[in-house]
Simulated assay, not measured.
Amino acid sequence: MQADNKMFDDFVKLVNGAAGTLAGVGREAEAGARSKAKEWIGGLDFVSRDEFDAVKAMAAAARDEADSLRARLDALEAKAAATPAATPSGA
């Protein structure tokens, strides 16, 4: 009976050791995958949030300026259409 108990204890120690080793391998694999992902993503040409917001603000300002210039052009075209066309002299 004592021999069976010792064999069972040895088997439990073996399984616990294997489980600990597998858990360690899993943690190392996860850390390696995270490291590779960060390296890969870092190599891509992403912009920061601040840069994105700055460009977005510049685009909005340019859009507002274009709308303002379009309104001025429409007013000038309306004014030019309202004045009678000058007839060339000597024709």
Score class of each variant (00 low, 15 high):
L22P: 00
L22R: 03
A23W: 08
A23L: 10
A23S: 11
A23R: 13
G24I: 06
G24V: 04
G24C: 01
V25M: 09
V25E: 12
V25L: 07
G26Q: 14
G26K: 14
G26H: 13
G26F: 10
G26L: 13
R27C: 03
R27M: 04
R27Q: 08
R27N: 08
E28M: 06
E28H: 05
E28F: 09
A29G: 13
A29P: 00
A29Y: 13
A31F: 10
G32L: 15
G32W: 12
G32A: 13
G32I: 15
A33M: 09
A33G: 08
A33D: 08
S35R: 12
S35V: 10
S35M: 09
K36F: 07
K36G: 02
K36S: 11
K36E: 13
A37E: 15
K38N: 14
E39I: 15
E39Y: 06
W40F: 08
W40H: 01
W40I: 11
I41M: 12
G42L: 06
G42N: 08
G43E: 09
L44D: 07
L44S: 04
L44T: 14
L44N: 10
D45C: 06
F46G: 04
F46W: 13
F46M: 11
F46T: 14
V47R: 13
V47F: 04
V47D: 07
V47Q: 12
S48Y: 01
S48A: 03
S48W: 02
S48R: 03
R49K: 13
R49L: 10
R49N: 10
R49W: 06
R49E: 14
D50C: 01
D50R: 09
E51S: 06
E51R: 11
E51V: 11
D53G: 03
D53A: 05
D53W: 04
A54S: 07
K56F: 11
K56Y: 14
K56L: 14
K56H: 14
K56E: 15
K56T: 15
A57W: 12
A57S: 10
A57F: 06
A57R: 14
M58D: 15
M58K: 15
M58V: 15
M58G: 07
M58P: 01
A59Q: 12
A59Y: 08
A60G: 02
A60P: 03
A60S: 11
A60D: 15
A61L: 04
A62F: 04
A62T: 12
A62P: 00
R63K: 10
R63A: 12
D64K: 09
E65G: 08
A66I: 06
A66M: 02
A66Y: 04
A66F: 02
A66L: 05
D67E: 13
D67L: 07
S68D: 06
S68Y: 03
L69C: 00
L69Y: 01
L69P: 00
L69R: 05
L69G: 00
R70W: 04
R70K: 08
R70E: 11
A71K: 01
A71V: 06
A71T: 09
A71M: 01
R72Q: 11
R72M: 02
R72L: 03
L73T: 01
L73W: 03
L73M: 05
L73Y: 02
L73R: 00
D74T: 07
D74G: 00
A75D: 05
A75I: 05
A75H: 01
A75L: 02
L76Y: 02
E77K: 00
E77L: 05
E77H: 01
E77I: 05
